[in-house]
Design a protein around this nucleic acid. Structure first.
Lengths: 146, 146
DNA sequence: GTTAATCTATAGTATTTAAGTATAGATTAA
DNA sequence: TTAATCTATACTTAAATACTATAGATTAAC
């Protein structure tokens, strides 16, 4: 039960954009280098994130990408939901028709509840929250002399 | 982010065993027929569930399988944890060494928290709870004249 | 003590999905 | 006009999942 690399790379890319929010467009190549993720793969992830209005882009030289909304208005849950192919723990949650048992299946309700618990947690965390976490992490390390 | 069929079939098998708890050994073929799941696949799932002391078996004719503990002492979380290959949302939660970033990775903590939220939910549900849900579901249907 | 019904163990295959790569094209600042 | 960037789509490879097959061990019933 792993998240796909799409979600994980996508979240790291969005966090990178948040770290450079309001500093002009960021080239995809920079993000890829900083985060050690393949350029071509990130290019694919950007498409749905643009459709979902999380990223806006500028073409041509000096172009790049930016958050389409402030970091406090974007949650990790939204990013994962956008990039993950199926967002629930079982296919029958999204498409009850795919299993004729779904109307009377006890386990189905369990997977639904567990999916919800996970997404509630992910939706409670914004990119802004993560920037704050980063700040306090760095402060902690400097206190330790690291 | 789907659960594997292992977890889903395994949970349905355990629920079937709970429904026949204290009525002697249940043949794997019966479960497979009732639940419409392949015999050979279930045979594989039984092995780790026996190791985890959730199932005990009797060999030979008239043999079969039973819950090794009462339904109120077995949670869905335990079943899923036993059958799922990797139980966390990211590999780096179980093996921090697999990624050199793990010590300073902000997203890693997020996946850890979300995994926990999901497992807390799954661990809060016992097979006994599910038998109760079944009872009230049936009562509801008979009230509707179904 | 033979038989047949059951579980046990391991190995093999086939399908699907995920991850990553390649190519060609569109846009635009300089 | 050029070169730097994003955009779109198609392809390839690798890994995991789901399932199947074969051979063997155990034991109740006769």
């Amino acid at each position: 039960m792993r998240l796909s690399t799409r979600s994980r790379y996508g979240t790291r890319m969005m966090l990178d954009l948040a770290q450079h929010h309001d500093k002009g467009p960021v080239r995809i190549g920079e993000i890829a280098r900083r985060q050690d993720m393949p350029v071509k793969y990130l290019e694919q992830l950007i498409i749905p994130l643009k459709k979902g209005n999380f990223i806006k882009s500028v073409r041509g030289p000096k172009g790049g990408h930016m958050l389409a909304r402030p970091p406090e208005e974007i949650t990790v849950g939204q990013i994962v939901k956008t990039l993950e192919s199926g967002i629930e723990l079982a296919g029958c949650i999204e498409n009850p028709g795919e299993c004729e048992r779904s109307g009377r299946c006890l386990t189905r309700g369990i997977w639904e509840d567990a999916s919800k618990a996970m997404y509630d947690k992910l939706n409670s965390i914004t990119l802004f929250n993560m920037l704050e976490m980063e700040k306090s992490f760095k402060m902690h390390c400097s206190n330790l002399g690291e």
